[in-house]
């Protein structure tokens, strides 16, 4: 009986880790991680370069006065200019950083622990399923050259399902 329980636990953990890897693949895509920096600036582009114009995080993660995020980023994408937009455009708080100070992604284990420490399962699932800026990643609009921005590696439905499976498995981390 004990051996069966151990086997079930290990199987659940294995499934949970597999689900986490799917979640992680989305979190570290440029559409998500560019605004989960550890520095005082956001990044942009698939090469994750520093945001142009010396844009600064600011005290509330929304830029500084006269150069707020909303100075340019409106509530929807501006495909005619290539400026992306969404409701309440802002950087993720430093408590949700997924990079180090050299702009390199943290390890999968570190990001996993960071995610777990900030939101419980129900809130995390709701965040991934409904938060407008999360949804924006699958509707990122066009670049200034007119081409469509790269999407995360999973569909939004797959991302939410992977999150659900990870939570169901007890949110195991690598």
């Amino acid at each position: 009986m004990f051996a069966v329980l151990i086997a079930l636990f290990l199987a659940q953990t294995t499934d949970g880790l597999a689900a986490w890897q799917k979640v992680h693949s989305v979190l570290t895509s440029p559409r998500c991680i560019n605004c989960h920096t550890a520095t005082n600036y956001p990044q942009q582009g698939d090469d994750r370069h520093r945001h142009f114009a010396n844009v600064i995080r600011g005290p509330q993660d929304k830029g500084v006065v006269a150069l707020n995020c909303a100075t340019c980023h409106q509530s929807q994408n501006a495909n005619s200019t290539g400026v992306p937009g969404g409701q309440n455009w802002h950087l993720a708080p430093l408590s949700m950083k997924w990079q180090d100070l050299n702009d390199q992604p943290l390890t999968s284990a570190e990001i996993c622990r960071s995610v777990k420490s900030q939101l419980d399962g129900a809130h995390l699932l709701k965040h991934h399923a409904e938060e407008p800026l999360v949804l924006w990643a699958w509707n990122p609009g066009r670049r200034p050259d007119g081409t469509v921005r790269t999407l995360p590696p999973l569909t939004h439905a797959q991302f939410v399902e992977a999150t659900r499976q990870w939570i169901k498995a007890g949110t195991p981390c690598p």
Binding site: F52, A53, V65, A66, L67, N68, A70, T71, C72, Q74, S75, Q76, A78, T81, G82, V83, P144
Partner: peptide, 27 residues
């Protein structure tokens, strides 16, 4: 510039400095 990169078109919209070249009137 027409793409929000130079700041010449800055106005205050709802009290916030905003690049007017980037805001459609519908918003």
């Amino acid at each position: 510039c027409g793409i929000g990169a130079c700041g010449a078109c800055t106005v205050h919209l709802g009290g916030l400095a905003t690049r007017s070249c980037l805001v459609p009137v519908s918003l």
